[in-house]
């Protein structure tokens, strides 16, 4: 104890105390915070997916979308949106919504895949809509260079005007935005094209054949994940805005620092 007390005026003492305090707060929070919302799992295997889905719907969705999915002033009708829309919205965490706002952002997922499928089955039963795509629809074809190139062309024609050239996302009016496509599951990109969630236009198979969607998904995944991006630090891949900020802060910053350094080291002119 004496040892500790002797060091209490050490310049780093405050820092150590701060670290301890932070660790304690964090630890306590982790111990007491609710780990995950309680989930009713596996209880009703005997019921059909639709009925189970309806239960989930009534507890999690109906306050905004209406008791029969007919929609209300707080949420659109879900009749005919299909299981694909449900899978996209629920499995990217956009639904259920946390609060009303210009747009539902991506956030941690609340339901399991099974629950989402049950919800999807219920919604699909309300009216026909696009089904969840099969895996072979969006499975990446690695090494298919022609498909990557075609996907790039389609991406620049249909997607980059909102999602940016590198899929980093972009702004839309009134606080809405086209979200980033980095680290999005290929299945969800495919579903988004299929159903046109929120502010996005939809690209049903009659407008954009499945092959083209697959090419786009392959391109996006390639560009955001696999493609070597030479030239060094990418600066967020946002284009000239971040380059301009960088040149003023670091380019000019270093150069002015160098100028000050050189001017400061000078043989003093003799005054006498």
């Amino acid at each position: 104890m004496k040892k500790l007390s002797a060091r209490r005026r050490h310049p780093l003492a405050a820092l150590v105390v701060l670290l301890f305090a932070l660790a304690a707060t964090g630890g306590l929070y982790a111990a007491f915070a609710p780990a995950k919302p309680a989930q009713a799992e596996g209880a009703a295997t005997a019921l059909s997916d639709i009925e189970e889905g309806k239960k989930l719907y009534l507890s999690g969705c109906s306050s905004c979308h209406g008791l029969n999915g007919q929609g209300s002033s707080d949420g659109p009708s879900l009749v005919g949106v299909g299981a694909a829309a449900v899978d996209f919205q629920v499995m990217t965490g956009r639904m259920p919504m946390q609060q009303q706002g210009p747009q539902a952002p991506r956030k941690p997922v609340v339901f399991t895949q099974e629950q989402s499928d049950q919800l999807g089955a219920f919604i699909a039963s309300l009216g026909a809509g696009p089904a969840v795509p099969r895996e072979e629809d969006y499975a990446l074809e690695e090494g298919n260079n022609a498909m990557i190139a075609e996907g790039g062309e389609l991406f620049r024609t249909n997607c980059s005007q909102c999602h940016n050239f590198a899929g980093e996302g972009g702004a839309l009016p009134d606080g809405k935005f086209a979200p980033s496509l980095v680290d999005v599951d290929p299945k969800h990109i495919y579903e988004a094209m299929l159903t046109g969630p929120q502010n996005m236009p939809s690209f049903p198979d009659t407008i954009m054949p499945p092959e083209q969607k697959k090419a786009i998904v392959t391109y996006i995944t390639g560009v955001t994940k696999d493609e070597p991006n030479p030239g060094g630090l990418g600066l967020g891949r946002l284009g000239p805005v971040s380059e301009g900020l960088f040149v003023w802060i670091f380019g000019l910053g270093f150069l002015i620092a160098a100028a000050i350094w050189i001017a400061a080291r000078t043989p003093k002119a003799r005054t006498k």
């Binding site: 620049r156 980059s160 005007q161 999602h163 050239f165 980093e168 284009g239 805005v241 040149v247």
Partner: peptide, 10 residues
């Protein structure tokens, strides 16, 4: 074609 975030140099 166009991309979001089309900007000129600073």
């Amino acid at each position: 074609q166009i991309t979001a975030g089309s900007q000129p140099d600073w």
